[in-house]
Design a protein around this nucleic acid. Sequence first.
DNA 1: ATAGAAAATGAGAGCGCTCCCATTATTGTT
DNA 2: AACAATAATGGGAGCGCTCTCATTTTCTAT
Lengths: 334, 334
Amino acid sequence: MPLTLEDIARLSGVSRSTVSRVINADLNVKEDTRRKVQEIINNFNFQPNLAAKRLATGRSNVIGVIIPAGVSDLFTDPYFPQLLQGISALCNTRDYSVMLWLTEPEYERRMISRILHNSLVDGVVVASILMDDPIIQLLIESKMPYILIGRHPTEDVNYLDVDNLQAGRKATMHLVRLGYKRIATITGKKNQVAGYDRYLGYVKALQDSDMPVRPELVADGDFTEESGYNAMQRLIMYRPDAVFIANDMMAYGAMRALREANLRIPEDVAIVGFDDIPASSKTVPPLTTVRQAIAPMGGKAADLLINMIESGTMTTQKVIMDTELVVRESCGAS
Amino acid sequence: MPLTLEDIARLSGVSRSTVSRVINADLNVKEDTRRKVQEIINNFNFQPNLAAKRLATGRSNVIGVIIPAGVSDLFTDPYFPQLLQGISALCNTRDYSVMLWLTEPEYERRMISRILHNSLVDGVVVASILMDDPIIQLLIESKMPYILIGRHPTEDVNYLDVDNLQAGRKATMHLVRLGYKRIATITGKKNQVAGYDRYLGYVKALQDSDMPVRPELVADGDFTEESGYNAMQRLIMYRPDAVFIANDMMAYGAMRALREANLRIPEDVAIVGFDDIPASSKTVPPLTTVRQAIAPMGGKAADLLINMIESGTMTTQKVIMDTELVVRESCGAS
DNA sequence: ATAGAAAATGAGAGCGCTCCCATTATTGTT
DNA sequence: AACAATAATGGGAGCGCTCTCATTTTCTAT
């Protein structure tokens, strides 16, 4: 039913090849014929069949985005939506489309293996992988261009990340400088790089300041609001005067726990979060937090990936992006 | 580089056709050969080229999801993530993939026209369209299977929605029954069906209860937190004792405004929201709200769409899903 | 004008599948 | 055992593009 190159060729009195040239902006077409053909194309709103193009060229102009579900809380945390938004916007500008897979843990391996081999996409962005995730191996073996969101310790792995360790250190240091003495932390999942590195940053800040790292002031969470709430409840009995929390969602949970315990923020307990998701400027009190530019990071990842695809080079990419400490009221420095 | 059907055929000593039959679970294959071929396929982890399949069959097993950006606040509101999650999960079970397009208003028309004609997808789910959106026309003309999330007034349009009017009425009625006398509303965008219908439900509840609809107690928002905050500030001077708010994000904004004005919830002003997004059970006080099962709705939409695709029938689908009023503390009924 | 170079166009094969139809192998029936 | 009926398999064309190479047209310089 839809038109084909051949149809357009017939309608404009040239050959299929010439139409193809017009569509692909080949230089060797006389201006006259180019205009004539273009007009027919416009009139009929002709769109070339991308499956056929894909088959002929081996390229689809589609990238895949793989988000392992269960890694974080996709429903509540705006991290992924923002990332997707950034990726999508960049793809729009470079004439790519995005294929989205939210993989469920039990099928993950099989699904990824399929994605990598069925030639639907030219490359993939993989978000928040675990440090020991076996899909890294699949990725490398497949020879498909890819980039991870989140540092990965393996050699020769392409990734894009913020310097979580440095950022965690910076946030904690801020609390140290404000004079807090019993600084606690609520960590993310420690088998995710972001969780682990932010925790290391916390440790480093204390060590660099000759302050002890007290195990009872370290509470593990999993990046969800609920886990922040629970962790804070556990921490309260050890009387921290400040807490560095590995993401904003957990910080919201922690604030909820503090409120229920009738502890004031920041007078009784100061709080610093991580992510600067949009709601964080509107909490009571507004949350001091480490801003990572999530959408731009997604865009950058997509851009790098498309560069890899189009250049055909596979030299390892490791890109680190900046963070910024956004000081609001929850840390007590106003 | 990747293997083809022909390769597998050679390796297992049968013809390309037979391999194809094995892959597509054709019945007319002897059990012996089926097993033999399947083994080779497994050993080499062979994945058929979907572009070629697409070209040969005219079907891709991919559905598109189109989300017009700027319609709502994609970053903050978990509505879309949940919807996507539901769609994606269903697609996983039916062996479909999803292509995601976050269209930007200025390119929207052109982009959609491309999506509909370039044969990448077998059908599309379109989320939150405006009531007078011109892309409806494109959709209908294209003959591609589609389904809208959100009622649309035009005849012969496929959609899936909750009964927003009924739900709005139910929520407002709840406030009426609790004895509130000056019930206000903060509306969503009135050129979106959800915004309009929820507002109509509010009006209907008051009329059915012989209560006046006071224009000064109707404040327009646009579904964002910010707009809820602003709308509430405007409402305060008219002393409402209760407010029905067209979504939870705006309810958060409204609560923030009330808190700043030192008005207690629900003692001074009662609040009912709409959506029951996850955070709403954790606000202070917890939010009474209309629950719509967002992820299941996405799943249902994808399911319907795939049914349309596979059956080839194009009979108009109009599906209405249930809502439920979740009573918590913000309405003062405990 | 005319040869030679350069630019523009056309024809054909091929990308990896499916699907129809022809062919061969396997049954069951008397 | 011989034949028809049926099951299993193979071969070929075709899906709508691209891309190389051959051919035709146009241009430039003499």
